[in-house]
């Protein structure tokens, strides 16, 4: 209560008006790596079926924030979290929550493509198998649907049994997207998904993200400001672990409210 009363009215630079339903709410989230505070009281709301981008210079905490959402930071020793993230009305830090079930609902695509050393088919079928789907027919269907969803089906349908590691970098990244959507998550987190790709492969991934928008909420961390402006609906600018500005992408890029944001997007530092 006190916190609410102490807070000034709504800060338009940090709390944009959002009409769509909110699927993820980050509430005063702080995170420490040992002694070092990497995230400082971050609060933001992520709307459903939109693309939200986190931008900021290296080490600003954008990837850390992203990895909090599916609790992948749990794996790192010495990480401590305060505050909360509410997903569909429930806290993800609630001890009763099944962490594997959470990760099934919040998928992730990584900076470097990370297909498993298995066949293309087995990569996509991996998640559904973990969920207990065993029937070959069901798996076939899921694999085809997911690969089609990731715009990869036509390229690989004749070589599903070949190793995924023989694909090109862009194909591997799309395979990772197919793998993520095979378990039918609600949210997909992208951690700099194009940083290792050439412009053409990047364009395909961005296109794919637009296609996926009708079904999934997407959160993307990117270094590349053009990419953020091209793909996202909302953009959050983080700097040194703090959320500096959050709002509709267009406004952030055309009319930033904070000086730091302006400096960063105009390329004066970063």
């Amino acid at each position: 209560m006190t916190a609410d009363t102490l807070q000034p009215q709504r800060d338009p630079a940090l709390e944009p008006e959002i009409k769509d339903p909110i699927i993820l709410r980050v509430e005063a989230l702080s995170l420490w790596y040992g002694e070092k505070k990497a995230l400082k009281e971050i609060s933001l709301k992520i709307p459903e079926k939109q693309i939200t981008a986190f931008i900021g210079p290296s080490g600003c905490g954008k990837s850390t924030l992203l990895r909090c959402i599916n609790r992948l930071n749990d794996l790192i020793d010495g990480v401590r979290v305060e505050g909360d993230i509410v997903f569909n009305g429930a806290s993800i830090f609630d001890p009763r929550i099944e962490i594997n079930a959470l990760r099934k609902r919040i998928g992730m695509v990584f900076q470097k493509s990370n297909p498993f050393p298995k066949s293309i088919y087995e990569n996509v079928a991996y998640g559904p198998r973990i969920q207990g789907i065993k029937r070959k027919r069901d798996l076939d269907e899921i694999v085809e649907k997911s690969l089609k969803g990731a715009a990869l089906w036509d390229e690989v349908k004749d070589r599903l049994d070949e190793s995924a590691l023989g694909m090109s970098g862009g194909q591997q990244q799309r395979l990772c997207i197919a793998r993520a959507i095979a378990v039918e998550p609600e949210v997909i987190l992208f951690d700099e998904p194009c940083s290792a790709l050439d412009p053409i492969a990047t364009a395909r991934i961005e296109e794919l993200m637009q296609d996926l928008k009708s079904q999934y909420t997407q959160v993307i961390v990117t270094h590349n400001m053009q990419q953020a402006s091209r793909v996202s609906d909302l953009t959050a600018f983080l700097y040194l672990g703090e959320l500096i500005e959050y709002g509709p992408t267009e406004r952030i890029f055309i009319n930033p409210m904070k000086k730091q944001t302006e400096d960063y997007i105009t390329g004066r530092f970063g």
Partner: peptide
């Protein structure tokens, strides 16, 4: 076996044991 490959498995909802058995050990 790169950490990122393990994380890929965990991010799909696999447990640590499933990750080791199905991804890490084969690799």
């Amino acid at each position: 076996v790169p950490r990122i490959v393990r994380e890929g498995s965990l991010a799909l909802g696999a447990t640590k044991f499933e990750t080791i058995r199905k991804v890490v050990l084969p690799a």
